[in-house]
Design a binder for these strands. Structure first.
Lengths: 208, 208, 208, 208
DNA sequence: GAATAAACGAGACGGTACGTCCCGTCTTAGT
DNA sequence: ACTAAGACGGGACGTACCGTCTCGTTTATTC
């Protein structure tokens, strides 16, 4: 994740267990303390690891938290629920559930905030989280096209743009609802959102 | 904003100029340093004010930044551009422009992140920013109904829910596009987004 | 001692009690730990003071220890015991007693060692300790001349040289005996040393 | 020096070259850094040796430095200059020259300081340096007695005491002059010191 | 001449202390 | 009563070394 296998040969090899322990400790600390009160010294001692070990592998708090949070997003799945609407509702609920976990809420928003003045961090987030999770949109879209719910898209550029738009609309709405507005993703909001999104997609797609 | 005018009578009154200077200095520091490296001592010295003066008026960094950022959002307007689509595009562009300013990007996301473990802060954000800016949706909606682009909504509860949904979808999509995905709100994205949103709104509204 | 009264006017004044507490804590730590294991953090906490307070007043461990040790040397006195020989024996015993205290042994030798690569520190030692304690030699010499045990010295330069020589011979012999050779200043050594020194002084003084 | 040749039989023998390289590197580091900033990792890398190799042979910094410095003192000699006074002046000058070398100044004083709370280290210094160099006093004394400048000393205990006293007076005065007072052993001081010491020795010896 | 066993280089490990920065509070004097 | 100034006790920072450990490699001696 953080090391690019520098192929060093000699010397004692790095402990693989330490990485996992550190990332788990990071999430634990995010839950209890939140990003701003999380300290690397505390993470190290939770992980049963020396501070130096932690600094040997990550450049700082931001990089560590991105990696710790990115692992959470890999838990998201898109099981086939039979229709596009059901698939969208499923992934929205999963995403809302993820954002109800403090380690994701606090960690994700904080690193996004930090990335506003740190280009390398922004790229790290884009690669480790954003592009990685667009897989969900790709899967859902392909499945809907196979079912005939959406027309096939011949132009790959246009397809990529649409995937990006849908991703921003879905993820953005859920994030804003839960974190900024601070209100829950309940049955009512879920149906309303899905109806508007899918109506728009189908209608807009048939337009000029 | 932060002081509730406790009707103090005697002694030297608080300097009114200090408040403005402090909030301006806060935004300046947000631009240069970002939230995490912003220190209250630095803000005080930028504002030409003693640290004690600052602490007398705000409880801490979070409260200060919320107030400093909230002022920015009051700059948003919704001029009548003749159609609902044009109005939406106008406000999206304004919001995107606001989020391109570092003081807004960094400040907003950071306090949202902080609010995940601080109920009072979440409420402060909801009141000072979220509810306050829903005025834009209300205005646009009323204007569209007056033009006949949207049907009147007799049920006030249902109307409030729809306003909330639209607000989350618009604000969320723009925030996610610019801050999380890290890509610009360009002509293409703008049109795509507006088409999907409005198609969805009109179509969904006529559904059962 | 360490501050040259920078005549600052505004702000909270430095605590006078802190200085004394820090120097006492330093000597206490020297006794228990010795110079190399003495840490400024430990001194600060013994003194009931924050580390920053300590660093605000002293540049580092060396400067602090010089000041802490210098205070010890001010305890040396030269009571009139009736004869030059008795006076010399008295001061040698006092000095040996001082060097039997761990805070003096460890502190003095360590800062001397440090001063070999630090000109500023050497000067600090010279001023705070060496020149300051030559007062003992001056007093003893004047008293002996008044008694008629030593001839008056008309040339002030020559007098200064002789004072320096005696100081180096007395202090050096005691330091070397106790710290380098690691043997005690007992009755026998004391008499032997005093006899050789005084015989040499009287005899040498009458030489060509 | 540090290894007691435990009569190991099989396996790769320790490199003899490594010992010399390490001691030389230690002196080099003492010159450049002084005792307190000398680190064993740095010495190891100067010597082209792994840290483990160094720790296999010495218990720590103190032991290493004592050995490195002790080698320096073996360079002292006492050539026959024809008279006791000339011999004394010769050895004082040699000793002063030795103490003008930073590796000796810094190393010697530092280990003496350390030894104040470490009995084993004190003993190591006494054996490796102090007792070892008393050979110079013995030689000079025997030579002076042979020349008739000093009377023979029948009592061996008394002789040992006198040797110790002279050693402390000579070494102590030179050390104090150069390291504590921080002033040079010049022609003037040298003659003054020799005159007082020898007058005292001869006169005192004839006393009751 | 293969097996054995110790020493070797490299570098990661759990730790401790460093000296600095900032926190939020306090104690001054001045407005 | 408010202000500017700045010292205070405290906590975390990121770095440098500590002395230990675990690797793979090298090198004499012994079978």
């Amino acid at each position: 994740m953080q090391s690019r296998t520098p192929a060093s040969r000699t010397g004692r090899p790095r402990s693989a267990a330490a990485d996992a322990a550190i990332l788990a400790a990071t999430r634990e600390a995010l839950v209890e303390l939140g990003w701003s009160k999380l300290t690397l010294g505390d993470v190290a001692s939770r992980a049963g690891v020396a501070k130096t070990t932690l600094y040997r592998r990550w450049a700082g708090k931001n990089e560590l938290v991105v990696d710790a949070v990115a692992e959470l997003f890999d838990e998201l799945e898109l099981p086939d629920r039979g229709s596009l609407a059901a698939d969208v509702e499923g992934v929205v609920l999963q995403f809302a559930a993820l954002l109800s976990r403090p380690e994701a809420r606090s960690g994700l928003m904080a690193v996004v905030a930090e990335s506003t003045l740190d280009e390398a961090l922004r790229e790290r987030i884009r690669v480790s989280i954003v592009e990685r999770q667009k897989r969900l949109v790709h899967t859902g879209r392909a499945r809907a096209q196979h079912r005939g719910e959406l027309p096939p898209e011949p132009d790959p550029d246009e397809a990529a743009r649409t995937v990006g738009l849908i991703f921003d609309m879905v993820a953005g709405a859920v994030v804003h609802r839960t974190l900024v507005s601070g209100e829950p993703v309940d049955e009512e909001w879920l149906h309303g959102f899905t109806r508007v999104l899918l109506s728009g997609l189908v209608t807009a797609g048939t337009g000029p």
